[in-house]
Amino acid sequence: MAGKTEKQDMAWRAIGGLIGIATAWGAKKVIGFAWEKTTGKKPPADSESLEISLGEAIGYAVVMGVGMQVAQIVVARTARRRYDAWKGLKDSAKDVVS
Rank of each mutant, 00 (worst) to 15 (best):
M1W: 10
A2F: 10
G3R: 15
G3V: 14
G3I: 14
K4S: 11
K4G: 07
T5D: 09
K7E: 14
Q8L: 13
Q8R: 14
Q8M: 12
Q8F: 12
M10Q: 06
M10C: 00
W12I: 00
W12Q: 01
W12D: 03
R13Y: 14
R13V: 09
A14W: 10
I15A: 09
I15W: 07
I15L: 13
G17A: 06
G17F: 05
L18P: 00
L18M: 12
I19R: 06
G20P: 02
I21V: 15
T23K: 04
T23C: 07
A24D: 14
W25E: 06
W25Q: 08
W25T: 06
G26H: 05
G26A: 11
G26V: 03
A27T: 00
K28Q: 13
K29E: 11
V30Y: 09
I31S: 04
I31Q: 05
I31L: 08
I31Y: 03
I31F: 05
G32M: 03
G32N: 00
F33Q: 14
W35E: 01
K37L: 15
K37C: 10
K37R: 14
K37A: 15
T38Y: 15
T38I: 15
T38F: 15
T38G: 09
T39E: 05
T39Y: 02
G40Q: 01
G40P: 00
G40N: 02
K41L: 10
K41T: 10
K42S: 08
P43S: 06
P43V: 02
A45V: 03
A45D: 06
D46R: 07
D46F: 02
S47P: 00
E48N: 10
E48Y: 11
E48R: 14
S49I: 08
L50M: 00
E51V: 11
I52C: 12
I52K: 07
S53N: 09
S53K: 06
L54S: 13
L54Q: 13
G55F: 04
G55R: 03
E56V: 01
E56A: 04
A57P: 01
A57D: 01
A57R: 04
A57C: 05
I58M: 07
I58Q: 05
G59Q: 01
G59P: 02
Y60R: 01
A61T: 12
V62N: 02
V63Q: 02
V63D: 00
G65S: 08
G65H: 05
V66K: 02
G67L: 01
M68Q: 15
M68V: 08
Q69N: 14
A71Q: 05
Q72A: 11
Q72M: 12
Q72S: 12
I73Q: 10
V74G: 01
V75D: 04
V75P: 04
T78S: 12
R80G: 09
R80W: 12
R80P: 06
R80A: 15
R81E: 11
R81I: 09
R81G: 15
R82N: 13
Y83M: 00
D84K: 04
A85I: 02
A85V: 02
A85T: 06
K87S: 15
G88A: 07
G88S: 07
L89W: 13
K90A: 13
K90T: 08
S92Y: 05
S92P: 05
A93C: 04
A93W: 09
K94T: 10
D95Q: 08
D95E: 10
V96A: 11
V97W: 07
V97A: 11
S98C: 03
S98I: 00
S98N: 07
S98L: 02
